[in-house]
Structures are given as C-alpha cells and as structure tokens.
Amino acid sequence: MNATTHDARPKRSVKRTLLILFGIYLAGLIALIAIYGFKGQRNNIYKPQDEFKLENWVNLGIFSINKAVVYLFLAAALTCVSMIYIARRMQQRPNKVQTAVELLFQLMRDNITGSSMDSRTAARWFPFIGTLFLFILFSNLVGYIPLPTNTSAKIDVLGVHIPSFSIYAATANLSVPLALALVVFVSYTVEGVRAKGPIGYLKGLIPGGVKGAITVPLFFLELLSNVMRVLSLTIRLFANILAGHLIILFMAGALAVILGATWLGWFTLPFGILLYAFEIGLVAALQAFIFALLTAIYLGGAVAEEH
C-alpha cells in the first residue's frame, strides 16, 4: 500500500510537469497570435539553403578553407583526440567511457568488418572501415553542436561582431560523402582485382549460375550497379544529414521567418527539439553504421569466391 503511493507520486509529478509545460506552450501560442496576429508577411529575402552556403574564409583557390573544411578538421580532430586519449588510457578494469568505446570498437571490428569478410581481409581493412565509421559518426555529431560559423549573418555581442550560431555538418555537403564513397569504390575494386585478377574480378561480377546470352546484359547491369553504389552511398549519407539539418532549421524558426508568422516559430519549436534529439540519438550513428557496413559488405563481396 505504501509502495503504490510511492509509485504514484513521481508519475503524477511528471504528468503535472508535462501539463504545466503544455499550458505554457499553449499560453505562449495564444499570446503570440494575439500580439503579432495570425497572418504573417511572407519573407522572400531569407533563403534557408543559404545556411549551407560555403564562404571562403581563407582564399586558396579551389582549396579555399570554408566552413565545410573547418568542420572536416573539427570532426577529424575530435575523432583522433578522443580515440587516442582513450586508447592510451586503456585499463584492465574499464570505466564507463572505456566500456562504451570498447563496445564501439567491437561493433566495428566484429560486427561490421568481421562478419563481412574473411579474417585476413578483415585484419587488413579494419583500420579503414573503423576510421570511416568513427569519422562519419563524429562528423555527423559535431554537426548538431551550434557553433558560431554563419559569417554572412553576424550578431552584435557587447560591440563585438561574432558570426551567428548555426548547425552544419561536413557530411551535409555532397563533396564529403562523395569523396569517401569514391575511396570505398576504389578500395574494393582494387582489393577485388588483387584477389582474383582483372579478368577474374570482372567475371566475378556476373552472378553465379548465369549462363548463355543473358550474361552480357547482366554483366553491364552489374557494372552499372557497381557505379551506382558510389551514388547511393553518397546520397544516402548526404541527403539524410542535410534533410535532418534542414528540418531542424525549419522547426527551430526558419518556417516562421519565411512565412513571417511569429507564432509559427513558437508552435514548431517542440517538434524541432524532438527532431534534434532523434537526429543526434539515432540518425547520426545509424548513417555512420550503414556507410561502414556497406563498405565492409562491398569489400567482402569483392574478395569472396562466389559473387
């Protein structure tokens, strides 16, 4: 009897907190509509895609340093520093962070790499696949931290003009996943040719058991699908991250700015927070996992005896 009252109390308090929050939300909505009106003035100046526009910060021709390059360095630095830091402090009895990293490491080594190819190939290619996973993961995650990177719109803080805070990710730029996907393509093609010879590798593209006249069109189809892998790898990662950022951007205020309705910003804010949590908690890791897993599968398929 005592226990039930103890159980009921936190539930009721959570319910009450949610009710209070919902009340504030509703009151804010009504107040904003009352103050600024329901109908907004359409804004044609603001372009949400400009949030992803790259401005040259240091001009080096085509190698100019822009926001994407900085994010690449940021992601790489975070990957290297955190992994090397943890690797140097590996304990026999791990703490929580080490346990998490060990789980991640085992996921990369055993589940992504080990399950897709024989152990010799896995040992050779694990550093590549592991780095791919971690690099994309950190790149995605860094992308959700608001940083003062929007140099086209500065805010004035005590007389100092600092770039406004925005979220951006290197992986939300087509070039970055495309470069990685090309590396993957080259890697598994080279590995396949090395394992079976150029002719053997091309023959291996034809599915086993196929004979006769159908082999020729099938061969070209398979060749095409190999090339399409690059595009699918690239676009899956790029589009997921870009769409995630865009929708967070819209929910966090861009919609209100474009439609000029102040209440809309307040209305969409909770959805923005939920989507932010969804992106950071699931999409960031999932996309890195998928990219690395597909890479491992392609590599394993390239060296496998039967296609």
Partner: peptide
Amino acid sequence: GLMVWTLLVF
C-alpha cells in the same frame, strides 16, 4: 577542392 580536403583529412 573540398573532396581533396576530405581525402587528406580522412
């Protein structure tokens, strides 16, 4: 340029 940067950093 960005692709080259990506390859270098990666």
